[in-house]
Amino acid sequence: MADLQDDLHPAAEAGRVDEPYPEEAVVVGPEVYEPVSDPDDAPLTRARAVLAAHPVADGYSGLPQALRRLPWYDLDLGESSVDADVPRLRRGQVGAVFWSLHLPEGHDGDRAVGATLEQLDLAKAVVAAHAEGLRPARTAGQIVDARNCGRVAVLFGPAGAAALGDSLSVLRSLHALGLRVLTLAGVSWAGEAGLTRFGEEVVREMNRLGLVADLSHASTPTIRRVLALSKAPVMFTRSAARDLRPHPANLPDELLAEVGEAKGLCLVPLTAEQAGPTVRDVADHLDHIRTLAGPECVGLSGTYDTRSAHPRELRDTSCYPSLIAELLRRGWEEADVALLTWGNVQRVLRGADFTAHAAQQRRPPSTATIAELDG
């Protein structure tokens, strides 16, 4: 974990966050999209062509935890013990992936802080050991840079709220070490009753830092309060439509509509438990959420390497073109597919960074404690 100390004072990034959103200079390989006239071959061919220009930004992967169980692995050559190695990420045309730092049940307090740091240390070491295929990233611009260099961008998070140890200083340290997303659930200040005063201060400090709030598995009062309070877009890293599949992490229609109004992002997990046993079931959820929340508010969450069952057609990360082909068969416009796979995640990350820049001009780091606010 000594390597983590090097990141406590990261180098300043090039560019200014107060400039207008730049057009992304994405270098596209030889598979630039051309319309295809053969109706039998069109969907999968078109899917691969669209993904060549707008690859998948996968909102949730359990790979770090899965690798802890292996005595040896090589993600560059291929690793059959996991769902996502570099060759399959490339076949699936994945351009970016969020690596979960969530902990097993029972970790809280100081134990949760230490265990999250260990998870983060492992994740950073894995990326460093596979530098030919993977590259760490924190911002939308760094994701584009990684893609232009032929690497898959890896973002760290979500981590569980317990990782803070009820300390805003720990929150700032985790952000300095590379954490990008925090799940607001499972703690006293973000529970079934909603956010406490300290919980609201956590959200304000996350906005100031540029950390994205993840509201999957959060209670409805917490979701509604964060949607109202946060100045930056929020994400649901693993939530489908509850009206299609009753699961506690899935969202009812009224909440999906509220997510759309707040310009949040609902990332649909490709798991049988939450979305259904076939690729058509997953596409049904994407259709449903796009209709209710809008095309700017829906994305993809592979949820691979989490010990969850996946539809046979989506068994690992190489299978994303099959899902995109199904959407094209249903009449999705390529512009909406581009938002689904790539553009919506970019929007959320850019929004978080712009909000952070503005907030840092208005307020210093918060020194509030849970004892002062909730005691």
Rank of each mutant, 00 (worst) to 15 (best):
I324C: 02
R307I: 06
T317H: 12
E326D: 09
T317D: 13
R315D: 13
E326W: 00
L328M: 10
G299W: 07
Y320E: 08
Y320N: 05
A325P: 11
L314I: 11
H310Q: 08
L314E: 11
L328K: 02
T317A: 14
T317C: 15
P311I: 09
T303E: 12
L327V: 00
L328S: 04
A325R: 04
A309F: 06
S322V: 15
E296I: 00
C297D: 05
E334P: 04
A335N: 04
L314Q: 08
P311R: 04
T317Q: 13
G299Y: 07
A325G: 11
L328H: 05
T303V: 13
V298K: 04
R330V: 02
S301D: 11
W332H: 12
D316F: 10
T317V: 15
R329H: 11
C297T: 08
Y304V: 07
P321M: 04
E313H: 05
R307H: 14
S301R: 04
R307P: 00
L314C: 09
R330K: 10
D305N: 13
P311L: 07
E296C: 05
L327P: 00
E313C: 03
Y304S: 10
W332G: 03
T303N: 14
E326H: 02
C297R: 01
A325I: 08
E334Q: 12
E296L: 05
D305C: 12
S308R: 14
E333V: 04
I324D: 01
S301H: 08
P321S: 09
E333T: 08
S301V: 06
E334W: 02
E333W: 06
G302W: 06
E333R: 14
R312Q: 14
T306P: 00
H310V: 07
